[in-house]
Design a protein around this nucleic acid. Structure first.
Lengths: 217, 217
DNA sequence: TGATAATTTGACCGGTTGGTAAACATTACA
DNA sequence: TGTAATGTTTACCAACCGGTCAAATTATCA
């Protein structure tokens, strides 16, 4: 019988696991580089080193593949925010959140671009995730930040916009990598660049740019 | 004779001007929403309210259209950075640069997304612009910032990363608009949101988050 | 007005795209 | 080992895509 891929009724085959892994890895490569529409199944099959019909045996459609990828990656992507600890020292919590996000931009740029592509084009495939799990997590952490501000442990500020600012500044180094490299020139890449960015951002978020003896009232 | 579109040897027709305008407007709409590859000529023709062959009479290829659009928009896009004034007061120059960039994200989100799509996918069509005019302008303004820092007028910081931070935080509101709206919820849009963001960012960049009596050494 | 150039259209083309059908090959397991 | 389920391949399709062509229509201006 041709009870195809993901034959959940049966136990998973060894081959199933291996192939699905290879496919999702290839899909991440291609989707992150070209977006959903711009990616082609042929291309993904090619990167995964298998024929297109073979790939489609494991994921019936391009959309199925994309969804499986999103589901797998979203959790990881939100881990740094989840690690945000209400009990910790506010400034050092924010500092280490920035650093963790920056590390993710460095170590998982494809994941960052996968989401960036998706959101940029109106999030047609992940609207539910944004309005559901993402919003809930952000709401929760925003409350933590608000409490810190209220207690005078950090400056009074809109916690949502603070989170947006951390997201955008850190993910910028993954999503706009080509532009960053074009502006900084050839010589500047790798760990040097990463450390420069980390130092700058930690300082920016904590102290700002002003050389104040007296903080403005 | 069929001396087609942009018959530069002849003076431009009234119709030429009007149609090219309508086409570029439609192209901006479609390219910014779907990226170069994801956009189709049919779709652009449809939005422009004309037939595909008619559109292709004015712009021979999809690429020609895209390039014309980029050329037209890039200048405008860099205007706020050009307005950056070495003679002005550093903090208020930075403050008003942030505000101008934020206004552009609000008033020209499609232009922002046009570039974001392009850069995100490796800037295959605008590499030259990034390494040329863009880099030169940034180099020039980075020098201004560096001088301010050296003179003790603002905190010592990497000027390039400062510019990246301003770009990313402001453009975030155009490029990731769907996500911002999903997280903030329905009620929060329009001018209220804009003012919140502006207030937050100006404060962040100037003062940081710390509630310091003493700035860290 | 008439002729000439500019514009518009419908029909069409070759290549690509996501996806299918069915035959063939391999694996797992009783 | 045999056989049923799983996995793979070749050939293919219909829809879509960027772009062409030639004929028809409209604007321009002497």
């Amino acid at each position: 019988m041709v009870l195809p891929r993901a034959a959940r009724t049966q136990r998973r085959t060894r081959i199933q696991g291996e192939k699905e892994e290879r496919i999702l890895e290839a899909a991440l490569e291609v989707f992150s580089a070209h977006g959903f529409r711009g990616a082609t199944v042929d291309q993904i099959a090619d990167v995964a080193g298998m024929s297109k019909p073979n790939l489609l045996y494991y994921f019936r459609t391009k959309e199925t593949m994309h969804r499986a990828l999103i589901d797998r990656v979203l959790d990881t992507w939100l881990d740094p925010l989840r690690a945000f600890d209400a009990e910790g020292n506010p400034v050092s919590e924010i500092r280490s959140y920035i650093r963790r996000k920056l590390e993710m931009a460095r170590d998982f740029p494809r994941e960052s671009r996968l989401f960036a592509n998706e959101v940029l084009q109106g999030a047609p495939h992940i609207e539910d995730e944004l309005k559901g799990p993402l919003k809930e997590l952000v709401d929760e952490k925003a409350e933590v930040i608000r409490a810190w501000a209220k207690a005078g442990k950090i400056a009074k500020c809109d916690p949502y916009h603070l989170i947006f600012a951390i997201w955008s500044t850190t993910q910028h180094y993954a999503d706009f990598d080509v532009q960053v490299r074009a502006v900084l020139g050839q010589g500047n890449s790798g760990d040097g660049r990463f450390e420069d960015a980390a130092r700058f951002l930690e300082r920016l978020f904590v102290d700002g740019l002003q050389v104040s003896e007296q903080p403005a009232s």
